[in-house]
Every structure is written in structure tokens, then in C-alpha cells.
Design a binder for these strands. Structure first.
Length: 433
RNA sequence: GCGCCCAUCGUCUAUCGGUCAGGACACCAGGUUUUCAUCCUGGUAAGCCGGGUUCGACUCCCGGUGGGCGCGCCA
């Protein structure tokens, strides 16, 4: 029988990276096995399920490339099936009506009274004694099915062959196994994934605002980096490889390599991985991403595409994440914002006045190619008796306002003659003031 | 409280009785780029504790400790 795995979130809020990791693992498993990856939306909690949350969920799946092979099953459309299943269980003696605490009549599932065993694909052989397995509610007194009933009925309907979910569901599994049998179905395989915890080593809570998938996208992380990183939490290929393409991951992913203890998220490692993915982005993709990010800067004003492309060519290898383009302001304005730290550290020592003056003279008559700028810089150093390369940093600060950036000759050549000259004047004015 | 699960550098992990316990992030030092980033080289850093079993235990067993999860007319 071919493999069918599912992701079954309830759209009651923003999608959490812990949840999306469950989706990724299911997707990987299904793809590895050549089976199907299914989506089921558990939207029976009408109080908390919202269309907005559903949209966020679907967006997150699409962003990460988690495509599903059949139309999603919405539990809100399955009310009749749950009621039928409950009736069926009652008829078969597996469930009974009860009026607990005078709240009205509800339906309880009758546990079989025997120990229950199942083999978890990740945690191994598990079992629970009959005396620890109490009857439990499956239909509320208002007639609505609870999670357990809906979950099992739908997993039967969807012909799911393996249920992979967070290990907070381990205890539920005994009940579900019993229900599968009572419903005349063979229980599927189960695999319970360890949780992931925040940087403090604690389970993610509502307060971890940055743990939502959408936040990672907003912060400029690449989906392939987040995808790759999340697979490394609680799983490894068994060798030293870490940066793995989607295809490699599909190929390598097996449940027997999933760890069973909780793993802590390390944003620094994610950022590092992101930088590696950024570096190998096609230039066009990087330009588009950078432009999107630049548009969000309060100082941004549109520039022509060719110029932006050149800035990107210079800066792509230096960017680990898109928001760093905010440091590119000096490429787009005539007067740089001088960074005080850089000025204090680099300018004003020695004869920067003479340096900038001499450089102006040289550059005024120079063609603004990288080579010509480089020659002018070296010539000025010689003229003033400076060591080779000693003009670079003062000039960088004078022209860009910062102490870091791309190659100095490349930067000047790109900025162009008029801007560079104006900025040297600014720097000279600063030195006088 | 009861039940279950887990336990290797700060973090993610490799190891399925015999390894100088390996890799990655982070950190430190050096090199390249006289900037920065990348990159390269090197370094600091780990088997929770206590008992067994064994010629030999990170690995198997037991106990302890620590952490996680579950015990809803939530999902």
C-alpha cells in the first residue's frame, strides 16, 4: 500500500515553527517514500478558528514549498461523518451516552479494558496499562465531536498510513489506536516527533513572538534556509553534511534517524545557513529581494535598475540576510551619514586634509574606472609619502561615512565622479569644523 | 501527585562495546582581502551522577538527578 502522510493543523493562530517543522517532516517522509502528502484543516473549534489564520497557514506552506497532493480536507465539512461514527460506536457497544454533571447528554468512548501496545517509529515500543486508560469524551453535549473522534474518523477517511505529529500526542495515541479498532480500521503507523524549544531551553509559548513562520519571512530569511535548518533539529543525515538541498533531503530522510529528545533552536546557526543560501542566489533573485527590502527603508528613493544591479553585485557576498541592505544608504545619496565611531577611529589622524585635497585633484581628471581610481589612490599615497593602502580607510570613511563596505576602488567607481568629489568636500568641511 | 519519554562540547549533532569521542554554529588566534564579507589554518570546549554486566562501556542493565510531555465538554 502506498504511503499517505498528513499534516493536520488547526488554524487558531499564526503558524509556529514547531508546527511547520512537523509539516516539513511529514512532507519529506511522503516524498521520500514516493507517497502522498495530505493536508487536513482541523477547524472545528469555531471559537478560535479564523479565516485569517487559515490564510496565514496556507501562505506558510506555499512559502516553504510544502505542496500537498490532494485538496485539503476541512473538518468543518465533516460534522455528519463524526455523528455517524459516534452512532456506529454506540451501536457496537464501543461508546455510550452519559449525562455528566447535568450538562446534557454527551458521548463517551469505552476503552476496551485491555493494555494497549503500539510501536512508535521514533520512540520504539510503547504501551499503557488498561487501568491507566479511562473512557473519554468523544461528542460534547452540544453535539460537536471532539478532537479525538474527528481526528481518527478523518485519518480513516483519508487512508493515512503514518501519523507523524508532536510528541505531546503520545498519550492520545493509546486512545486513538483503540478507536481505530472500534471503528473497524487497522491503526496506521505512528511517529512522534520531539518538540523544539526556544533559546532559553523552554517550550515555545505565546510570548515567543518571533517563532512564527511569517516572522522569519518578514525578517528576510530565505525559505530554503529555514527549511534546511528545521530539518536539522532532531534529525541528521548520519554524516557531516548540513547544507542539504530539498532533493538531497528527500533522498536522505528516514524516520530511524529522527532523535527523540527535544532540540533547541539556535538563531545564529540559522543566520549562518541563510548567508550561505544568500551567497548562491542567482543575481536576479538577489536584486529583486534587495529591492523589496530597500523599498521598506524610510530613506529609500527609486534608482535605475542597472545601478542597483551593480550595487548588488558588490554586496551580495557580504549579505547574510536581506535587512542588511539598510546599510547601503551611502550608495544612494550625495551626502553620506557619517558614522561617529568610524569617523573618530579613522579620520583626523595624520594629514587627511592633504590626502583628500590631493585625491580630488587626481580624480577630477581621471576616468572613473576601477583601475583608474585604484591608480589615483596609489599615486596620492606616493605623493604624500603614505604607505601602500594607507589611503583606503580614510577615503572610505570620507566617501561612505562607514568603516566597512566593498572594495574601495569598486565603491568609488560605482558612485561616480561627481558624488565622490562632493563627498570629499563634505569630509573636508567636517575636518575643518 | 500519577504515567510516559529523553539525557554527548554553550547550541545542533555523529557514534549503534574497542574512536586521540568526529562535524557544524558560536567563540578565540593566525592567514588572505591593507576595509568588510567570503575563504583558509589552528585552538578552547562534551559523554549528568552512582552502581552493575563485560577483558573492555558514551554505547547494555538498575537506581538517582535533571529536563520534557500527558492526565479538559482545547486541539
Amino acid at each position: 500500500m502506498s504511503v499517505r502522510a498528513r499534516f493536520a493543523p488547526s488554524p487558531t493562530g499564526p503558524v509556529h515553527i514547531g508546527n511547520i517543522r512537523v509539516a516539513i517532516f511529514n512532507w519529506l517522509y511522503a516524498r521520500h517514500e514516493g507517497g502522498r502528502f495530505l493536508l487536513r484543516v482541523e477547524d472545528t473549534d469555531r471559537e478560535r478558528s479564523t479565516p485569517e489564520a487559515l490564510r496565514v497557514l496556507l501562505d506558510a506552506l506555499e512559502w516553504l514549498g510544502l505542496d500537498y497532493d490532494e485538496p485539503p480536507l476541512y473538518q468543518s465539512t465533516r460534522i455528519a461523518a463524526y455523528q455517524a461514527a459516534a452512532k456506529h460506536l454506540i451501536r457496537g457497544g464501543h461508546a455510550y451516552r452519559e449525562n455528566k454533571d447535568g450538562k446534557g447528554e454527551c458521548v463517551m468512548f469505552r476503552m476496551p479494558g485491555a493494555d494497549i501496545f503500539y510501536k512508535d517509529e521514533i520512540k520504539g515500543e510503547l504501551h499503557k496499562r488498561a487501568e491507566d486508560l479511562k473512557d473519554f469524551l468523544i461528542v460534547r453535549s452540544d453535539g460537536h465531536a471532539v478532537f479525538h473522534l474527528a481526528n481518527v474518523v478523518d485519518d480513516i477517511e483519508m487512508r493515512v498510513t503514518l501519523i507523524m505529529r508532536g510528541d505531546d500526542h503520545v498519550e492520545n495515541t493509546y486512545r486513538h489506536v483503540a478507536m481505530f479498532r472500534a471503528l473497524g480500521a487497522e491503526p496506521p503507523k505512528y511517529a512522534h516527533l520531539p518538540m523544539i524549544v526556544n533559546a532559553q531551553g523552554k517550550p515555545y509559548s505565546k510570548r515567543d513572538g518571533d517563532a512564527f513562520v511569517g516572522d522569519f519571512r518578514d525578517k528576510g530569511f530565505l525559505p530554503q534556509a529555514l527549511f534546511n535548518y528545521l530539518t536539522l533539529l532532531g534529525w541528521s543525515p548520519g554524516d557531516d553534511r548540513e547544507k542539504l538541498s530539498r532533493e538531497e533531503l528527500i533522498n536522505l530522510f528516514t524516520l530511524d534517524r529522527v532523535k527523540s529528545g527535544p532540540a533547541q533552536v539556535d538563531l545564529k546557526k540559522l543566520l549562518h545557513l541563510n548567508g550561505r543560501y544568500m551567497a548562491e542566489l542567482p543575481a536576479e533573485t538577489f536584486v529583486a529581494g534587495a529591492r523589496r527590502q530597500l523599498c521598506a527603508c524610510d530613506w529609500w528613493r527609486d534608482v535605475d535598475d542597472a545601478y542597483l544591479r551593480q550595487v548588488c553585485a558588490l554586496m551580495q557576498s557580504r549579505a547574510r540576510i536581506y535587512p542588511q541592505v539598510e546599510e547601503w544608504k551611502h550608495f544612494f545619496f550625495d551626502a553620506p551619514d557619517y558614522e561617529e565611531k568610524a569617523v573618530k577611529k579613522i579620520l583626523g589622524k595624520g594629514n587627511d586634509r592633504a590626502l583628500f585635497g590631493a585625491l580630488k585633484t587626481r580624480l577630477e581628471s581621471a576616468a572613473f574606472t576601477v583601475e583608474a581610481v585604484e591608480r589615483a589612490l596609489r599615486a596620492v599615497e606616493t605623493d604624500l609619502g603614505l604607505g601602500h593602502g594607507h589611503a583606503n580607510q580614510p577615503v572610505r570613511v570620507a566617501v561612505t561615512g562607514r568603516s566597512t563596505g566593498a572594495g574601495i576602488a569598486e565603491t568609488l567607481a560605482l558612485l561616480g565622479k561627481s558624488r565622490v568629489l562632493v563627498r570629499l568636500d563634505h569630509a573636508l568641511a567636517r575636518l575643518s569644523g
